[in-house]
Every structure is written in structure tokens, then in C-alpha cells.
Write a protein that binds this DNA or RNA. Structure first.
Lengths: 201, 201
DNA sequence: CAATATACTGTATATAATTACAGTAATAAT
DNA sequence: ATTATTACTGTAATTATATACAGTATATTG
């Protein structure tokens, strides 16, 4: 999907704002008035350009017939069991999706992962909890991370991370630290835990 | 707010469905066509009646100018500190509101309460966590409840509940059970904890 | 260097849509 | 018993709106 120009982005934002304010899209005249165009055709042509780039769909003949193509995916996938081999976010792993609500949880949650086992109870992460995982947030020492060792996905605290030694700590006295040599075993830090959600208490 | 007639409800549903399908409201002609009216004026008059009853607002002169009055409150209040005296849900206690997402958390959350203190750490409820509280769900023995003793609001496990003795248990070995005689102290079980949300980890 | 995209003005028109007015008929409320 | 509400048909006018066509000017791309 091509990038919008600054002006086109302004118009797309205007449409979104109009939707929020009124619950329906603006007319060409509305757009022209708001942006100070002297001709509704200016708006028309911008809309055509934005449609061409795939951000909206224009229904011909219908007044206010502008449909937003929700490119920004506003649904967060919930990952249950992770099938061996494939990527965590593979379609087969997605248990359901939940709408992103900006007010609520930090914006950089890429997915929720359902916790299995009791290895993190001492930091209040229980079996069946959903942890919000950010792929991009830096994987710093001390973070609770989602790690993949060979084909197994696990949630642990990242204690040490060097070229030949990574230590992952369960937050439960009954478990031992996991030491991995990334030059021997395949190790991927998939993301950091940034939120938690417990659906049933 | 007066009740809608069956036909009026049908039309309101039609509008909502149109919003979901297209992202904007239907025209009078759309409504007439869908419901088999031979005159757009039939739709017009229904809309006026629905507006009169407070379910929608009609913007005059605007095509598709129908605004739904979100009567079903789809925002869950988040309660921070509870001011002494008043009800928990008093406006001054509302820190923010978050949109209800049906997929995600059980539907009978009436509000979120921000947890203060560490008295419930052993069941994975930490300071600053938000607990989802249901007012209606039965306050059974063993439930984690939101209780108000005189003017203080607290979250504990309900252990015993009889006419002259109520025991509330902190889930933390460093704290003692709280025993209340409801005939001496004012005690209200405000609700049961049905979900948990941790915004920052 | 020509073609294409961007960013508009300006005019015009067909059609989309609201909305007023005039009725009919059945049912519910006072 | 009469008045208001509900639930429509039918017609028509006015306004709202999309959209085509003809331009101008600048910037970007192949």
C-alpha cells in the first residue's frame, strides 16, 4: 500500500474525525469547507487518489459513501498453544482476537499469549493469564520475556544475555534457572511482557 | 426513555446493522427498501418517532444525518482512590473510562478498581493492578470481594459470612484476617472480583 | 524531457436524499 | 368518546451531493 501525501493524510484524518464526531463520513463539500477549498472537486480528486492507494473505498452514487479500509489492524490476536515449528503469530495459533482500546493498555501490545504452567507465580503471572507481548520493546535484562528455545515457547525473566550465555529465570522457587547457549541451541527472544489480563477469577 | 415499539426497534436495528456493514447510516429510501415500504416517508416518520423517544438524533438537512444515542453504556469506569463517604461509583472517583470489549472480559464487569497495597499478592493481585468488579455476581464464600467497612474500601477473600460475623482474609501471610461484626460496624460487600488487568509490567 | 502525480479553481448537471403535505386505517391512551 | 400514536401510501418540491468536464500550476518520476 502506497504512502499518502501529507495533504491526503490530512483528508483521511478529517474523515476519521468526522466519523468520530458524527458517526458518518463527510461530503465532498464538508471536506472542501473544512480545508478551505473553493471547489468540492478538490475533495473529490483527493478521495480518488486516496482510494487508489487503498486507504478508502468510494461507493459510487451514495452520499457520504466513503468506507475506511481499516489498514491499521485494531484487533490484537490472542495466542493459545503455539504449534511447534511455525511463527507464534501463525493463523493456526490465534485463539481469538480482541479489539485494541487505546485508553486501556499500552499501545505496543502485538499479541496476547495465554500462560501455561506456574513458573511465574511469584510475579503474579498465573496459569491461563493472558500476557500482553510487545515485539519491539527492547529486550532488556530484568524484563519478563517471551523466549523460544528450539521449538518451545516460554515466559521467563531475562537475567543474563551474552553471546554464549543467556539465563532465563522462572519466578518460582520450585524451578531452576534455564541456561542456554545461543550458539548451540536456537534461541529467539520473541518479545517483552508489557501487560497482563486475567479473564476469570 | 420510553420503550420503542417492535417496528421502531426493527428500524433501529436496521440502522445499527447498516452502520456495521457500511460505516454510515442508511437513507430513508434504504430503510423503506429493506423493510418493503412503498414510501420513504414511512421511514421518515418512524425516525421522527425514534428520535422523540431519545434513541437517535436526526440532523436536519444532512444526508444520512442519523446519530445513534449510545444508551447502552459501553464504557467501564476505572476507580482510583475512593473518597470517604460517597458511593464507589461517584463521579469524583472515576479515574478514566475504558471501552467495553465484549470478546475480552466477562460482560458483568461494572467497574475496575485500582488495587492499593500488597494484601492479595499470594493470589496474584498486585498493587496498581485493576480488578474487574461485578456488583451483581453473588457474593459467595471463597470469592474475592470488594468490601466496605465503615468508610474504607478493601479487597479480600470472603471466608465467613453470618449475621454477626464476617471474616475477610488477606492473601498475604504478613497480614491477619479481618473480623467484622456487621451489627456493630457498617459492612457492605460492594461486589466480586471477576477479572484482572495489569497495565504495566 | 515527456509523462504522471499532486493540488487545486470554477462551472454545471444529474441524481440522491430530505422533507413537507395530503391521505387511510388500526390500535392505544385519556 | 375523542384524541394521540402507530403504521403506513403517494406525490412532489427543495436541497444536498456526487461527479463529470475544462482548466491552471508545480513537483516528481521514468
Amino acid at each position: 500500500m502506497k504512502n499518502l501525501t501529507k495533504r491526503q493524510q490530512e483528508i483521511l484524518n478529517l474523515i476519521k474525525n468526522h466519523m468520530l464526531d458524527f458517526g458518518f463520513p463527510p461530503t465532498r463539500a464538508d471536506i472542501a469547507k473544512t480545508l478551505g477549498f473553493k471547489s468540492p472537486n478538490a475533495a473529490e480528486q483527493h478521495l480518488r487518489a486516496i482510494e487508489k492507494k487503498g486507504f478508502i473505498k468510494i461507493l459510487s452514487g451514495a452520499s457520504r459513501g466513503i468506507i475506511l479500509n481499516n489498514s491499521d489492524n485494531d484487533e490484537i490476536p490472542v495466542i493459545g498453544l503455539v504449534a511447534a515449528g511455525g511463527p507464534i503469530l501463525a493463523q493456526e495459533n490465534i485463539e481469538k482476537t480482541i479489539p485494541r482500546s487505546n485508553n486501556l493498555l499500552s499501545n505496543d501490545i502485538d499479541y496476547f499469549l495465554r500462560v501455561k504452567g506456574d513458573s511465574m507465580v511469584e510475579v503474579g503471572i498465573y496459569e491461563e493469564d493472558l500476557i500482553g507481548v510487545s515485539k519491539t520493546r527492547g529486550h532488556k535484562i530484568g524484563n519478563i520475556v517471551v523466549a523460544r528455545i528450539n521449538d518451545e515457547v516460554t515466559v521467563k525473566t531475562l537475567m543474563v544475555m551474552s553471546e554464549e550465555k543467556v539465563i532465563l529465570r522462572p519466578e518460582n522457587q520450585n524451578y531452576e534457572d534455564i541456561e542456554v547457549n545461543p550458539q548451540i541451541d536456537e534461541l529467539v527472544i520473541e518479545g517483552s511482557c508489557v501487560a497482563l489480563l486475567r479473564e476469570s477469577i
